[in-house]
């Protein structure tokens, strides 16, 4: 495994002014990543690809991730000076984190056989500021994967040679891998449903009168 943190430092000196942030990974995998500002993504990618010590010539995996807007209630312990005495006071801080879409890149080097170096870039929000630069001109392997992310998440990649839907049909309007996607209600027909499934099944038992066949009525 390579040292992501030192690459981050090197990048900061090599490309001053670029938004680069180290993101630690607390899980046992310890695969930490670099959060790159969208506008600097191409420069960083090119640097990583060309640098003789790293030579990340192989972009293995491109992933979209959806983060909904969420409010976090955090209990923050604060030391306050009450009546001249230091006391610990718990405070609930409510924080709203705006939603964003994230694209994660996994880089490897084939000649040097190291990796993965994980880059991530975020869009401004989930509705109108969803553009990120495309890395397809640098690594062809991003071509279909970026198209897939455009299809399923709705991130638009500037500079992609052929940005169309990859998996769904062209007339489709939603982005189904987003967390708030509502799928068509068309499948709860188990013979013995219960709970919420029963409710949905019952909704299907009284079809609209236009195409209601006579034998299908709930009693």
């Amino acid at each position: 495994m390579i040292d992501t943190e030192s690459i981050a430092n090197e990048l900061k000196t090599a490309l001053p002014g670029c938004g680069i942030e180290f993101v630690a990974n607390p899980s046992p995998s310890a695969q930490s990543s670099l959060l790159i500002q969208g506008t600097d993504l191409v420069a960083v990618a090119q640097w990583l690809k060309d640098h003789s010590e790293y030579r990340f010539d192989y972009l293995s995996n491109v992933t979209g991730v959806d983060h909904l807007e969420k409010t976090i209630k955090e209990k923050v312990k604060k030391t306050q000076v009450v009546d001249g005495e230091e006391q610990e006071v718990e405070e609930t801080v409510e924080q709203t984190i705006p939603g964003y879409l994230e694209v994660v890149y996994h880089l490897y080097s084939m000649p040097l056989r190291h990796g993965p170096l994980i880059l991530r870039a975020r869009t401004g929000n989930r509705s109108n500021d969803v553009a990120l630069p495309s890395l397809t001109p640098i690594w062809r392997s991003a071509e279909f994967q970026e198209r897939e992310i455009f299809d399923l998440y709705g991130v638009t990649f500037d500079g992609h040679p052929d940005l169309r839907r990859l998996l769904m049909w062209d007339e489709f309007e939603d982005h189904p891998m987003r967390k708030d996607y509502v799928e068509p209600d068309d499948y709860e027909y188990e013979p013995t449903p219960h709970g919420p499934v029963l409710e949905r099944a019952n909704a299907h038992q009284t079809p609209p009168s236009t195409d209601a066949p006579s034998e299908t009525q709930s009693d």
Binding site: N25, P26, S27, P28, S29, Q31, S33, N61, P116, I118
Partner: peptide, 9 residues
């Protein structure tokens, strides 16, 4: 699993 991420191949 604990919060975090992993890529295995």
């Amino acid at each position: 699993p604990k919060p975090g991420e992993a890529y295995g191949r």
